[in-house]
Every structure is written in structure tokens, then in C-alpha cells.
């Protein structure tokens, strides 16, 4: 289980983020409230991804860690970039 979290954690946070954005936009439309919520949510997800990376670095005895950890770290980096990128529309 821990190996799967390492491998998929970043991507899962990314998914949580875009569903969050969808619900914010659908409920609060294009209002200022929506922008603030989405912006804060983006920061929260980005922070969570950073925490995840730190956590992955501390995992050594997970099964197949030698392969899973680098892949999971790369996934987290990808997710971090994507989360920030997808949050950008709140600025416009």
C-alpha cells in the first residue's frame, strides 16, 4: 500500500486539485469568492505536494522503493507544476 501511495500520491493530489477547481467554479461561478477559494486551494494543494515529496524522501523500507520512490518523486514534481499552472486562471 505504501508503495502505491509513493507512486501515485502526487498524481492523486493533482486530481483532487482539478476536481476542487471544478466544484469551486460551478458553485461560485466567476465571482471574486470563487477566485479566492480557488487560489487558496491551489496553494494548499501545492503545499501538500511539497509535504508529500518530503515524506517520500524519508521512505526507505517500502517494497520496491528503489524504483517506486524516484518515479513517485517525478510524479510529484509534475503534479506541482500542473497544479500551479491550472491555478493561474484565477489571476485573470
Amino acid at each position: 500500500m505504501r508503495s502505491w501511495i509513493i507512486l501515485l500520491g502526487g498524481l492523486a493530489l493533482w486530481a483532487v486539485h482539478f476536481f476542487g477547481l471544478y466544484f469551486t467554479g460551478s458553485i461560485f461561478l466567476s465571482s471574486g469568492t470563487a477566485r479566492s477559494i480557488a487560489g487558496l486551494f491551489t496553494l494548499a494543494c501545492a503545499a501538500a505536494t511539497l509535504l508529500l515529496m518530503a515524506w517520500i524522501n524519508r521512505q526507505s523500507e517500502a517494497v520496491l522503493a528503489g524504483w517506486v520512490s524516484p518515479a513517485g518523486r517525478a510524479g510529484a514534481v509534475l503534479a506541482l507544476i500542473a497544479i500551479i499552472w491550472q491555478g493561474l486562471p484565477v489571476l485573470f
Binding site: Y22, G25, S30
Partner: peptide
């Protein structure tokens, strides 16, 4: 005719 903000999110994604 979705909310403009949502359109922005989906375009970025």
C-alpha cells in the same frame, strides 16, 4: 456558456 473561470481551468488543464 459555462462560467468563464471554469472555462479557464478546463483550458489550462
Amino acid at each position: 456558456g459555462m462560467p468563464t473561470l471554469s472555462v479557464g481551468f478546463f483550458s489550462a488543464a
